[in-house]
Nucleic acid binder design. Structure first.
Lengths: 328, 328
DNA sequence: CACAGCTACGTCAACGATGACGGTCAACGT
DNA sequence: ACGTTGACCGTCATCGTTGACGTAGCTGTG
């Protein structure tokens, strides 16, 4: 700005005025300033600007684990849709591991985003209470925080798990294999709890040999499904706790040639579920809507909404496509 | 920081020293400062820090169109992998439309990222020459920039298009339908040009009635495929120019019951391609590697690498799975 | 004992921008 | 002729932090 001011022969403040459309500068001078500015390719340094103007950067941070497929595109779509309405910039950063999550969140926070949207990944989010105290609102998506109180938008994982297993039971299954990711994830625990509740309601004793957790990749899920199918008394149905596991299990069923004999229900919808043979029955949740609601709540907080933290639970829906209706 | 300094009874500079591990502060004082700092939940304001320290923010910006599936997760994975090695933060922001792309890039730039990675989306990137002049390197991924000279990492779209069509021709096809997205995208044009080259080499006259572009969603591609199949003289094979189109076409083939009669080759690999019936033959490119190379080049530029802009073209690979080997 | 050399601090200006406030000058009213 | 007004523009302090440099006090040395 100083450069421009010197070349036009005015003060730096006049340049600032023109660039912010403040008025109080003669049209002739303003035009010259604009000309020179575009000539030298000036870009205002928003870091300095935000520093002076007091902590409103028009930016929110979004920290994601980035594990599964589909989920993230849909979620980001919802968040960006709302952010765009109010002209905010969404800065997305990855948090694959728990340590990385901490770094990412602190980095976003120390870059002074106006708010944080977190898909949590660690065992302890208490460090974020400092940001909350500083006035940076934090909203959690898909899973609740640990050791922290904050707004949270969730899917009804329990109801989904229960609906899936109840559906299988209604179709005559009593031995249901379960494949899922890390049991320290809230979603995994809740879906499993729903599964167990449905078993209990049907008077079926849970069999822990049928449950394979800690399967984080499609390949691991594939191996787990193959193991289950090869057992002496194999399950007649599989319930997979996320779409990565569903894909692995579908592949194992196909390889074993059992895809039309063993039932399969997956949590999370995924592209092409309808094109597999048989088409895959899933418990679907509207992830884009989850992103929208989370963003709306975050912006409300940024605007000063001060009610106690909310926990919003979004409904899930069982979509029967064929694989879940196979009878034993 | 001032708050902490007052409470400990030292100068603000000593606090800065401790927080940056500079030394020159007695262990006792340092400990007291650290205690108070964590007590009040202090977070350094990196905006101010970067402002003072002169334009190195340890951050790169990544602007993405976010259109297709799979592609983005893989790309981001590659970029973050390299960024993590050097402890840089990747801020990803969406640029769905051309105007939005401009806004996004300018916003990232005025937040003083050290470099920009762009999956281009607009007809004119000349405005970025100002950032280049300011010393912010810009690297383009997947498609080249327009009206700007900059490093670019591409896949060999031409060779891929040519290989796909040559493969179909080798299996006896002479009427090949093509479905793709916007023809102003470089990737679409190159893949199509490859297709036409392969036709010419086989002495087949191109038939523009078999080419359906501007199909941006799976539904639109689905409709286009259905139209082609319903024609009086339908194609015996389809070449789809990206995975969204491939999915739409696969769905149309299935609905028409022609999936084992009409050949299909898609550009871009996608999850579950191997599980469809028949499994889908694709031209695959290593998107994660593209992200890695782009990030590596960007960091090299940030570190001062000053050779002329490069254009790196990554190889593609045809993966025969079944659908592309159907004969007419 | 004078002096160098070290440790452990503090002071000040600066990064790039803007808010608050003040000044100049022409036009205008009385 | 003189005060008032408003348009136009400048000065200064400030946001939170760090680099450059200064200084007080202590230790060791010749």
């Amino acid at each position: 700005m100083k450069d421009i001011a010197d070349r036009v022969g005015v003060s730096i403040k006049s340049v600032s005025r023109v660039l912010n459309g403040e008025g109080g500068v003669s049209p002739a001078t303003a035009q010259r300033i604009l000309d020179i500015a575009s000539e030298v390719g000036f870009r205002r340094n928003d870091l300095a600007r935000d520093l002076r103007r007091g902590h409103r950067t028009g930016t929110i941070g979004l920290a994601l684990r980035r594990s599964s497929t589909r989920f993230y595109d849909d979620l980001i779509r919802g968040v960006e849709e709302i952010a765009e309405e109010r002209g905010a910039l969404v800065l997305t950063a990855g948090s694959r591991s728990a340590e990385r999550e901490r770094e990412t969140l602190l980095a976003l926070s120390s870059r002074r985003v106006d708010g944080l949207l977190v898909e949590p990944n660690g065992p302890d989010h208490s460090f974020l209470s400092a940001e909350q105290a500083m006035g940076t609102p934090v909203v959690f998506v898909d899973r609740p925080p640990s050791r922290l109180t904050a707004d949270t938008i969730l899917s009804d994982d329990f109801a989904g798990g229960r609906a899936a297993t109840a559906h299988l039971v209604a179709h005559g299954h009593r031995r249901i294999g379960v494949i899922g990711a890390l049991p320290d994830l809230h979603t995994v625990r809740e879906r499993l709890r729903g599964h167990e509740a449905a078993l209990a309601e049907a008077g079926i004793a849970p069999d822990e040999r049928l449950v394979r957790l800690n399967r984080e990749t499609a390949d691991q899920a594939h191996a787990a499904a193959a193991e289950l199918l090869a057992a002496v008394d194999p399950p007649t149905a599989l319930f997979t706790l996320n779409n990565v596991c569903t894909i692995g299990a579908a592949r194992a069923l196909r390889e074993a040639g059992r895809e039309s004999r063993v039932a399969l229900i997956g949590f999370d919808d995924f592209d092409l579920a309808d094109l597999l043979t048989p088409p895959v029955t899933v418990v679907a949740h509207d992830v884009t809507e989850m992103g929208r609601q989370a963003a709306r709540l975050l912006f409300a907080r940024i605007d000063g909404y001060a009610e106690p933290p909310q926990r919003i639970v979004l409904p899930v829906e069982l979509i029967a496509r064929g694989s879940g209706e196979i009878e034993p």
